[in-house]
Amino acid sequence: MNVLLVYVHPESRSLNGSLKDFAIQRLEHAGHTVRVSDLYAMNWKATLDADDNTARQPGARFDPSMDSRQAFENGTQRVDIAREQDKLRWADGVILQFPLWWFSMPAILKGWVERVYAYGFAYGVGEHSDTHWGDRYGEGMLAGKRAMLVVTAGGWASHYEPRGINGPIDDILFPIQHGILFYPGFDVLPPHVIYRTSRIDEAGFSKACEALGQRLDDLWTADPVPFRRQNAGDYLIPELTLRPELAPGRSGFDIHVERD
């Protein structure tokens, strides 16, 4: 299988750097082909702006969505954007590896999403009608591919439990897993989170690699998070609200996950 590892950390000698090297070796040893987008090493441009459309008329009003659409349709995107889109088309599986900074992904990775997820590529696709509201949330250009987050966090695991001070880790990562990965069609695997990173010694690193290695071995067989598909009947269209008979009396992120 083809695996794209989007790696985010400014220090190659960090824990994240060592885990990235381990992941590449583990995947290649299993027979997979791995490509890496090391955003800091690539000096990735994080800001979406008018310069992303190379054929844009000077002085024209910048409309992020429409400029993105025109550039994608006309083949006038900056080459760095088109290159990353090609990697996503090539990949059977995508891993986003990053440290949890201020309860989210680092800004450079958010910028990768904003620029690479062009209109017509990751959003704005499919018909919009009274029965089908675009190809998204389980459908889209990236449907049939798998994705997983590998996240490091400085806090204890208990800080991210349902009653932990930071809030449940699944809630913190929901906008990324549901809104960035599931939205364009990925089958999203449960995240792999490594906690209390500043206290990991040599023995702890070996345990971390063992746990990560098992998740990488299971990349193609593990059950994805059972997010509800938008156009499969669970949501009223065009309101896009969950039908009242499903998860009655409840709200929040969890209602968008099917439970037995």
Rank of each mutant, 00 (worst) to 15 (best):
A211H: 13
S206I: 15
D234R: 01
R215S: 08
I237H: 13
D218F: 00
L212E: 08
L240W: 11
R228G: 01
Q214E: 14
K207R: 15
Y235S: 06
T241L: 13
P226V: 00
P224N: 04
T221Q: 05
R215C: 08
R229C: 02
G233M: 06
N231P: 03
L242T: 02
W220L: 03
F227V: 00
E239G: 05
A222N: 01
L240R: 15
A222T: 10
L212T: 05
I237L: 14
V225F: 05
E239D: 13
L216A: 05
E239S: 10
T241M: 13
V225Q: 04
R228K: 10
R228A: 10
D234A: 12
L236S: 07
E239Q: 14
F227L: 03
A232T: 04
K207M: 15
R229F: 00
I237Q: 12
E210I: 12
L242Y: 02
L216T: 07
T221A: 01
A232H: 12
R215G: 03
L219A: 02
A208F: 08
L219N: 01
F205V: 12
L212C: 07
V225C: 04
R228N: 04
D223G: 00
N231H: 03
F205S: 10
Q214T: 10
K207G: 07
N231W: 01
P224R: 01
G204W: 14
G204T: 14
D223A: 07
L212I: 11
I237F: 09
W220T: 08
R228L: 14
E239I: 00
L236P: 00
L240N: 13
Y235F: 14
Q230I: 03
T221C: 01
D234S: 09
G213V: 11
G213D: 11
L219Y: 10
W220H: 03
G213Q: 10
C209A: 12
P226I: 00
L212W: 13
L219E: 02
R215L: 05
D218R: 11
G204Y: 15
Q214F: 09
L216S: 03
C209I: 10
D223Y: 00
C209G: 02
G233N: 04
T241V: 14
Y235R: 06
K207N: 13
P238Y: 07
T221G: 01
G233Q: 06
D218H: 11
A232V: 02
A232G: 01
P238F: 07
G233I: 06
I237A: 06
P238K: 11
E239N: 03
T221W: 04
D234V: 04
S206P: 03
L240D: 10
T241K: 15
P224T: 05
I237K: 14
L219I: 13
K207H: 15
D223R: 00
A211N: 13
R215I: 06
A222R: 03
P238L: 08
L219Q: 04
R228V: 08
A211M: 11
F227Y: 15
R215V: 06
G233T: 01
R215Y: 10
G204F: 14
W220C: 00
N231G: 03
P224I: 01
